[in-house]
């Protein structure tokens, strides 16, 4: 029933899409993190002129499907070639790759903003008071106290967001990018064996996300040394015979 040779061949073809998938995910996650940090800090800072547009951005991108965002960026904005050419932006919007990066980045930026904003809010106020009492300036409090604690608190949620992005790259198959899902569709149309091909592709994504989970997990472990239970003292070699 299961044709192992075919599965191996499908794997070989599908693996060729992995670099593009990872490139899309890595680029949009890092650019999105930058957007998220700036927006979350602006929201935390709380100036009304800043919070209003950021809230609108976050709501718009969290409230609509990524698929719509990708189509809108690619085909929707493509309709305005003369205007974009006049602005000198057409070189960017002409390429499906950059349209995909733009849509994915803005999407993950919006989710990231909410995650980091939440984390900034959860930093215990005592920490900030202590820092202020030590005479730290506002910026120094951010750099040394608020951001490091908030980023550690945000890490589990951000890990989920990264996984969602790795999964989200599959939607760029719709704007002609040849990543893993797109190759899977090609294979299906060539061989008409949809189930085997999609199972292989699923396994590849699962493997990628497993690696992401492990990396996030190990970072989390290293950053939470002070929260772990102290090493069991009884297990240490007892000295002086006083047990």
């Amino acid at each position: 029933m299961i044709d192992l040779d075919f599965m191996a061949e499908a794997f070989r073809r599908l693996i060729q899409g992995v670099p593009l998938t990872l490139e899309l995910a890595a680029l949009s996650v890092s650019l999105g993190l930058a957007i998220a940090l700036v927006c979350a800090m602006a929201l935390h800072y709380g100036h009304r002129g800043l919070t209003w547009p950021i809230r609108a951005y976050v709501t718009a991108f969290r409230g609509t499907p990524l698929l719509v965002q990708i189509f809108f960026t690619y085909y929707g904005l493509g309709q305005f070639r003369p205007e974009l050419q006049a602005l000198g932006l057409w070189g960017f919007f002409r390429e499906p790759f950059w349209c995909a990066i733009l849509a994915l980045t803005l999407n993950t930026g919006a989710y990231g903003t909410e995650i980091i904003r939440g984390a900034l809010q959860s930093v215990p106020y005592g920490q900030i008071e202590a820092a202020r009492a030590c005479g730290m300036t506002r910026w120094l409090v951010y750099r040394r106290i608020l951001l490091p604690i908030a980023l550690r608190l945000a890490l589990p949620s951000y890990g989920n967001e990264i996984i969602l992005m790795v999964k989200g790259t599959s939607l760029t198959s719709i704007i002609t990018l040849l990543e893993v899902t797109s190759i899977a569709q090609q294979l299906t149309s060539e061989t008409f064996r949809a189930i085997e091909v999609f199972v292989c592709a699923g396994a590849i994504y699962l493997a990628m996300n497993f690696v992401v989970t492990r990396i996030i997990g190990s970072i989390e472990y290293r950053l939470s040394a002070h929260l772990r239970a102290a090493p069991d003292l009884v297990a240490l070699p007892a000295g002086g015979g006083s047990a």
Binding site: K167, A201, G202, L206
Partner: peptide, 8 residues
């Protein structure tokens, strides 16, 4: 949770 929803 690990496989793209599109593939599912």
């Amino acid at each position: 949770r690990g496989v793209p929803d599109l593939l599912t």
